[in-house]
C-alpha cells in the first residue's frame, strides 16, 4: 500500500494548512499546520472531537469558510494540478459542485426549503453543463433512482419537508454526485440519522463510490464509521494531526497516546458490562489557551519536559503510518513488552 501511494500522484495534497478565525480575543488558529494526501478512488477519514478542526480543514479545501471572520493564512491545497488556496474565488465557483461535491450533516438546513428537490439538483447541473431543461430533469430523475429514492419521478417535484431525514440525505448525495466529481467531502453525513438509516446511507455512499470511482473525505467523530468505511485516517486533536495512516494500522496499532486513549475509552458490544472504562483525563484545551509544546501534554500519561518545550513533528517507521509524539517509540516498546510478559 505504501508503494502504491508513492507511485501515483495524489488527487489532493494539502500542505501546512493554517486557517484562523478573528475573534474579540484575538486570532485563533482552528487549523494549525495540517498536511495530508488523498489518492484517487480512496476514502480518507478525518476523526476527532468537537473543535479539533476537522470541519474547518474540509471547508478550507473548497474555501467555504465564514467570511470575513475566517481565512486561510498559510499553506497549499493542490487539487488536480492547481493550488486552491491561491485560486481566485471564480475558479472555486467552477470547482464546487463540479469537481468537488459536498454532503453536509443536516440536510434540512443544507437544502433550500422553498424549492423542489429536483430543481435544486438540476441547478447544479445547469450551472456547470450546457444542458437543456428536459435533459437535466431526465438526468436528475435517473440520479434520484440511483441513490435509492422510490418513485423518483414523483419525488423530484416534492419539497424537502415532504421527505424523511434519510431521504433528504439521499437527495444531498444525488446533488453531490450529479456532475460526477472526482472528490466528495462528506461532513458528518450520518450523525443526524438513526442507526438503521445510517447503515443504509453508508452502504449507498460506498456503492456509489465504487461505481463512480470517486475519492471521499469522510469527516466524523464516530470511530465506528471510520473503521467501516475508510481506507486511511487522519486523527486530529486541537487543530493538528495527532496520527495518520491506514485504518488497519491506526486501529490495530495506534501510536499516539490520544488515539490509544480514544480507542480504549469507547464501550464495545463485546466488552464486559458494568466495568470502568479507561478514560482520557481532563478535557480538550480551549483554542485561546493552548498548552505550549505538544497540545495533548496536559492529558497525556507519558508527558515530560520535552513535551512541554517543543511540539513533536509527525514521525514513524515508514512514511505512511505516523504520529506526532516525541515518545512513540518508547510507548510502543512499553505496550508490546506489556502484552508479551
Amino acid at each position: 500500500m505504501v508503494d502504491q501511494s508513492e507511485k501515483t500522484a495524489p488527487l489532493l495534497h494539502v500542505k501546512d494548512l493554517v486557517t484562523a478565525f478573528d475573534t474579540e480575543g484575538g486570532q485563533i488558529k482552528a487549523v494549525d499546520g495540517v498536511s495530508f494526501s488523498l489518492q484517487p478512488g480512496r476514502t480518507l477519514g478525518i476523526v476527532g472531537e468537537s473543535g479539533c478542526g476537522k470541519t474547518v480543514t474540509a471547508l478550507s479545501i473548497i474555501n467555504l469558510l465564514p467570511k470575513p471572520t475566517a481565512d486561510i493564512l498559510e499553506g497549499e491545497i493542490w487539487f488536480e494540478g492547481e493550488d486552491l488556496a491561491s485560486a481566485p474565488i471564480e475558479r472555486l465557483h467552477d470547482i464546487r459542485g463540479e469537481r468537488i461535491g459536498m454532503i453536509f450533516q443536516e440536510p434540512m438546513t443544507a437544502l433550500n426549503p422553498v424549492h423542489r428537490v429536483g430543481r435544486q439538483i438540476m441547478e447544479t447541473l445547469k450551472l456547470h453543463r450546457d444542458i437543456s431543461d428536459a435533459d437535466a430533469l431526465r438526468a436528475t430523475i435517473s440520479m434520484l433512482e440511483k441513490v435509492g429514492i422510490p418513485s423518483p419521478e414523483v419525488r423530484v417535484s416534492e419539497y424537502p419537508h415532504q421527505l424523511s431525514g434519510g431521504m433528504r440525505q439521499r437527495v444531498m448525495i444525488a446533488m453531490a454526485l450529479i456532475c460526477d466529481p472526482s472528490l466528495v467531502i462528506a461532513d458528518e453525513p450520518t450523525t443526524a440519522l438513526d442507526v438503521t438509516i445510517q447503515a443504509q446511507i453508508l452502504e449507498l455512499l460506498q456503492d456509489m463510490q465504487n461505481k463512480l470511482n470517486t475519492s471521499v473525505i469522510m469527516i466524523t467523530h464516530d470511530l465506528g464509521v471510520i473503521a467501516e468505511t475508510c481506507d486511511d485516517v487522519l486523527v486530529m486533536y486541537a487543530g493538528r494531526v495527532a496520527e495518520q495512516g491506514s485504518v488497519d494500522d491506526v486501529f490495530n496499532n495506534p501510536m499516539h497516546p490520544y488515539t490509544q486513549g480514544l480507542l480504549s475509552s469507547i464501550p464495545r458490544l463485546n466488552s464486559p458490562r458494568k466495568t470502568k472504562l479507561p478514560t482520557i483525563e481532563g478535557m480538550v484545551p480551549s483554542l485561546t489557551d493552548m498548552p505550549t509544546g505538544c497540545r495533548f501534554n496536559n492529558r497525556c500519561p507519558y508527558a515530560d519536559e520535552l513535551c512541554v518545550s517543543s511540539y513533536p513533528q509527525l514521525d514513524g517507521e515508514d512514511g505512511f503510518h505516523q504520529a506526532a509524539c516525541h515518545h512513540w517509540r518508547k510507548i510502543d516498546a512499553q505496550l508490546h513488552s506489556g502484552t508479551t510478559s
Binding site: V195, T196, L223, G224, V225, I226, I266, L269
Partner: peptide
Amino acid sequence: ALIAAIPEPDP
C-alpha cells in the same frame, strides 16, 4: 438489525 447496523470500531 439494530445490532448489525452499529458501526464497529474494528476494521
